[in-house]
Design a protein around this nucleic acid. Sequence first.
RNA 1: GAGGGUGUAGCUCAAGUGGUCAGAGCGUUGGGCUGUGGCCCCAAAGGCUGUGGGUUCGAGUCCCAUCACCCUCCCCA
Length: 427
Amino acid sequence: MTGKTYQAPRGTSDLLPPDSERWARVEAAARTLFRLYGFREIRTPIFEVRELFERGIGETTDIVEKQMYVFQDRGGDWLALRPEGTASVLRAFVEHRFDQTMPPPYRYFYIGPMFRHERPQRGRYRQFHQIGVEALGESAPEVDAEVIALGWEFLRHVGAQNVQVEVNSIGCSTCRPAYQAALRAYWQAHAEELCPDCRRRMDRNPLRVLDCKNEVCQAVLQGAPVIDAYWCDPCRTHFDAVRTALAALDVPYVRNARLVRGLDYYMRTAFEMTAEGLGAQNAVLGGGRYDGLLRALGGPDWPGVGFAIGMERLMAVLPEAADPTSALAVMFLPLTEAARGVALQGVQTVRRLGIPAWARMDVGSVKSGLRSAHRAGVRFAVIIGDDELRVGRWTLRDMSASRQATLSPEEAVEALRRALLLDAPSI
RNA sequence: GAGGGUGUAGCUCAAGUGGUCAGAGCGUUGGGCUGUGGCCCCAAAGGCUGUGGGUUCGAGUCCCAUCACCCUCCCCA
């Protein structure tokens, strides 16, 4: 290695094989499962005008205040790398008048990178990836349950271990203020028993204190007012119906009265799915209802509910893939310069059958060729040297059986087709 | 943004209180096997010990800074 070298910026990382392939499988599973629930994929830019996030997420949230990648482009416009996906999806909805141009259901999902300038640690990176869904225009509590069920089914389907579903209702703009006031009063009465962080935030974000993990605060939290007593009738009715629907959908969950959300737009239903083995960042999936957000972004007064999955966190809790699948099934090994042309045509013929194949064009010894074939985990090697060229045949070697035969190209291709495509899909 | 830990070959790790301590295994390449992989044996290549300063006769080892990673707080997916 000579000269200056570079590394990926802090909090970012390269996704390499075979991990990239595991990611692709999980993403493919999301696409098929989400479609079963009527969700369609939407792709939005990874940067937006800064104001969209300030309005959508909340100007006083940590995400907007101190984690957003904000920059001015060469034209002087203020832009921001997206720190989450919901604002962009709703912006697209409003911009393209989905309510007038698209048929119901108004259900969308996205997959892609998000950016937050945070201190990296396990399960938390500056560029991270989310898979999220948004169901718009559906106010029924059954929809909340359906969205939660989708998240749960997905996590289970891809093999996440020990997932716990936590559900809560954080009330609405009618009833939450009274609860926040009650909390504030309670925190103030017990201020000296709280940790410094909580003393600092108890006025500005009284709900957040409920979520404190500090041992010191636990005793105080036990006696804190519970939101149930403050719900307005509609919120209570809604949450009851969500719970009924969750039971009907066979989603095992626990009520966590202290579960809160960090983004301003959430109301009523809030939920989180956590898994073991993630350290402090144990939420794999989080979401909730956000009626009012679409209107705040200039759209119709339609309700919404959705979730986002943290890809890095999800992949961290999936069991290791038992089979390190090889990328190639066949490797062509030309032994002389003269054999390269034959190998090139041969490898293309095999590929056209749908068999992943590669020709090692830097000519070498049989020994080195078979060694690379072995290392690549290939099932067949095709050896083409002077002997083969003389008779117009290929030597087809079955690597695992250690058997080989010298066949005409037609016979060899047919043998590969039979061995490799028997149970393959027809297309 | 705050606190703590770690950085030695591609990978995983060794190197008593600073003095041949820059090594091993795996991997890579070549050979033993003149056209045949895996197992075994042999050999070679590969490191300015993250980077930059400092202390010292002498620093992988001590000090400072910086970068990266890990853990916690914070925040959240």
